[in-house]
């Protein structure tokens, strides 16, 4: 059954005053963000500036020290465990390290989220969905292979297929092209755009790869010292004469 988006405004994610400290290190210090329906938002920032921490707070893997995170109009921080799990069905997460389960085949990796979230699908529908997402990433022949038999680019695409298996409304990409050669990186960027086209997903993309930023971003937020430093579209960043902004686009 098609999932219906039910939230009061067009923002699927709204974050206000998000703070996350690790000891003395103020990783996020009053960060704000709005993600619209079907929008691709790129978060830029130096290594260790809290970009990955931000998306882990959104999915509930990390608890912020203060602030508000609303996803589809619901405060993520006040959800109980079951409600958070239900919310996670609607949020896909592509891990930087792919996070494929070593001890499982590609098929089992893709089945895992469906089985664990108790998605109401019969065997045939589940098989069809696995074939569909594998076909989308062009790796149908790998279905019975182990992750150790796949190349880096293939693992990234399988991880992307696993992210898509529950047909989420929002996808959080943690450096999707990091560590890939330019050709494979371009393939992943194309897949990200295809997914948005096909499934109408909104996305937050953490990336340092300017090709990825240029191709995917509807909106960019630059993080510095845990706060929003600059916000705008790609053209406004390219045209900026701010030396800090220029460093990223040289």
């Amino acid at each position: 059954m098609e999932q219906q988006l039910t939230y009061p405004n067009e923002n699927v994610i709204s974050i206000r005053g998000l703070k996350k400290y690790f000891g003395e290190n103020k990783v996020l210090d009053g960060f704000d963000l709005d993600l619209g329906k079907k929008e691709n938002l790129v978060v830029l920032g130096r290594s260790g500036s809290g970009k990955s921490v931000l998306i882990k707070c959104i999915i509930g893997l990390l608890a912020p020290d203060s602030g508000q995170i609303e996803v589809f109009g619901k405060d993520i921080l006040s959800l109980d465990h079951q409600a958070l799990d239900e919310m996670r069905i609607r949020i896909g997460f592509l891990f930087q390290s792919n996070a494929l389960y070593d001890s499982m085949t590609v098929r089992e990796n893709l089945e895992f989220p469906m089985r664990r979230h108790s998605i109401d699908l019969n065997e045939e529908d589940a098989r069809q969905r696995i074939e569909e997402v594998l076909d989308n990433v062009g790796l149908s022949h790998t279905i019975d292979m182990m992750p150790s038999e796949l190349s880096g680019g293939m693992m990234k695409r399988i991880a992307l297929a696993r992210t898509m298996i529950l047909k989420p409304d929002i996808i959080l990409y943690d450096e999707p092209t990091a560590g890939l050669d330019p050709v494979t990186g371009k393939e992943i960027i194309t897949l990200i755009m295809d997914i948005r086209q096909k499934y109408n997903t909104a996305a937050i993309i953490i990336s340092h790869d300017m090709k990825c930023v240029k191709a995917t971003a509807d909106k960019i937020i630059l993080l510095q010292n845990g706060k929003n430093y600059k916000e705008g579209n790609y053209a406004s960043f390219i045209g900026s004469d701010d030396p800090y902004v220029q460093q990223f686009f040289e």
Partner: peptide
Amino acid sequence: GSMKVTEQIDAMEVSGT
């Protein structure tokens, strides 16, 4: 340990486990 550093444990949590 290997599952922890390759974020497989986080992936499990995100998968409703």
